[in-house]
């Protein structure tokens, strides 16, 4: 089993190289350049734009740029941002706390909601609570976050005036008062995200439970006279978690890239905002940096998911 994982980790290296190469190629071939924010501004004439591109190394063919990029990445250096002219790692470092505070918490929260709610609505599928939850998750799925965000702002910032609509990233969490502010400003973004995430996760959890509840082993467990709680949690839930774990693991890296729209709406300015604005500025090193870390996490979490199957379902054979 350990062997199996070491082998998998080794396999992951070429696939990371492949992924990064293809992403780099896409970024290089996709249209756009770092000076487009100047629009048609005559103050930045064509020659100036060319000089800037040269300064950024964009005058070289992209395969050469890829090799240069890859060789610095090996040394742990993700390059420097075209727009901010500072190291990409530093930029990501500045953004990560915001993303974790909001997106990470929202993700955890949605898990905490989704698992019990999904189980409950599967165990008592005909109950009123189950229907109500169903409906709510459906709202979460079908309303785009840009809409729920605006609606929350209208209610809580404009009408009631109780929550701030601009997220303050300068808060130093050293006092009770600062924590209070932090909680207040996090409520809306976290709520928007949690509603969205929990909706889908609840549905998957419920579906997996429904698949497992009628299974023989559950009947057997009941027949053995185990308590209903034990039957559901120890037997049905454990098996139902298999597909759900895939989802959780696979989407965990998404926490890293953040919930872009939500970050935008509330100006949380985390990694997601960084990614989008860098794409929009054609700030390739930043996009590559974020996406590459993301790819590492994707591959890594796939490995974790594999391991989790093994733990949850001993019948899975590793060969």
């Amino acid at each position: 089993m350990l062997n199996h994982f070491i082998r998998k980790v080794l396999y992951a290296i070429p696939s990371l190289i492949g992924i990064s190469f293809i992403i780099f190629a896409i970024l290089a071939l996709a249209p756009g350049d770092p000076m487009s924010e100047f629009g048609a501004n005559p103050d930045v004439p064509a020659e100036v734009r060319e000089n800037i591109k040269k300064q950024l190394g964009l005058d070289q063919p992209w395969p050469v740029r890829y090799v240069k990029w890859a060789s610095t990445v090996v040394r742990g250096d993700l390059g420097f941002s075209f727009a901010a002219k500072i190291p990409v790692t530093q930029l990501i470092g500045q953004r990560l706390p915001q993303t974790m505070m909001v997106v990470g918490v929202a993700y955890l929260l949605s898990l905490l909601i989704a698992i019990p709610v999904g189980v409950l609505s599967a165990v008592k599928p005909r109950s009123l609570a189950s229907h109500a939850v169903s409906l709510l998750t459906m709202v979460g799925i079908s309303l785009p976050t840009f809409l729920t965000g605006i609606i929350l702002i209208l209610i809580f910032s404009v009408e009631l005036g109780v929550l701030p609509m601009i997220y303050d990233t300068n808060l130093k969490l050293t006092s009770a008062e600062a924590w209070g502010k932090q909680i207040k400003q996090s409520i809306m973004p976290i709520a928007v995200l949690a509603l969205f995430n929990a909706g889908a996760m609840t549905r998957f959890m419920r579906s997996a439970m429904l698949d497992n509840l009628p299974a023989d082993y559950v009947r057997t467990a009941r027949a053995k006279g185990l308590s209903e709680w034990t039957v559901i949690v120890k037997h049905a839930l454990r098996n139902s978690l298999i597909p759900v774990v895939t989802l959780i693991a696979v989407n965990l890296p998404a926490v890293f890239t953040g919930a872009i729209i939500t970050e935008q709406i509330f100006r949380v300015n985390g990694i997601g905002e960084l990614l989008v604005s860098s794409i929009q500025r054609s700030d390739t090193p930043v996009v590559m940096g974020v996406v590459f870390i993301y790819a590492v996490l994707v591959v890594g979490s796939q490995l974790i998911a594999d391991a989790a199957y093994g733990l949850l379902d001993p019948r899975i054979k590793f060969s």
């Binding site: 293809i22 896409i26 970024l27 996709a30 990614l275 989008v276 794409i279 996009v287 996406v291 994707v298």
Partner: peptide
């Protein structure tokens, strides 16, 4: 999964 959607 790792592809950046907008450039793609």
């Amino acid at each position: 999964q790792a592809l950046p959607v907008v450039p793609v």
